[in-house]
């Protein structure tokens, strides 16, 4: 039985590492806007993302916050102003 979670990741990291964090997260989750990613992942993907982020960041200087929800439906999403990157699958 595979369990999934919906993740919202925000980060504030040193300029030297910001690109590495961004390009890594781009392979795993949807880019929402600057320094914000989200998406549904399995438990094992979740662990992999945490491990990989810990490897990239400098624990003394950077901050990454991972919000997790039971499912996408457990979260409300309300966009004010522009939606920089809609999540639709039809392009």
């Amino acid at each position: 039985m595979v369990v999934t979670v919906y993740l919202l990741i925000v980060y504030d990291v040193g300029v030297e590492r910001v690109n590495r964090v961004k390009s890594y997260l781009r392979t795993e989750l949807h880019w929402v806007q600057n320094s914000v990613f989200e998406g549904e992942v399995t438990e094992s993907q979740f662990r992999r993302i945490e491990t990989n982020l810990e490897r990239i960041i400098d624990r003394e200087r950077d901050s990454v916050i991972i919000y997790s929800f039971r499912s996408e439906r457990a979260m409300n999403r309300n966009v004010l102003g522009l939606e920089k990157s809609p999540l639709d699958v039809i392009l």
């Binding site: 438990e43 662990r47 699958v89 039809i90 392009l91």
Partner: peptide
């Protein structure tokens, strides 16, 4: 991670189909 808080949702659709209808 707090697995107790996880709902068993049974639907493993973390990978999606993408449909490209425009030229690019």
């Amino acid at each position: 991670m707090n697995s107790a808080g996880l709902e068993q949702c049974g639907m493993i659709m973390t990978r999606k189909n993408y449909y490209i209808t425009t030229d690019g």
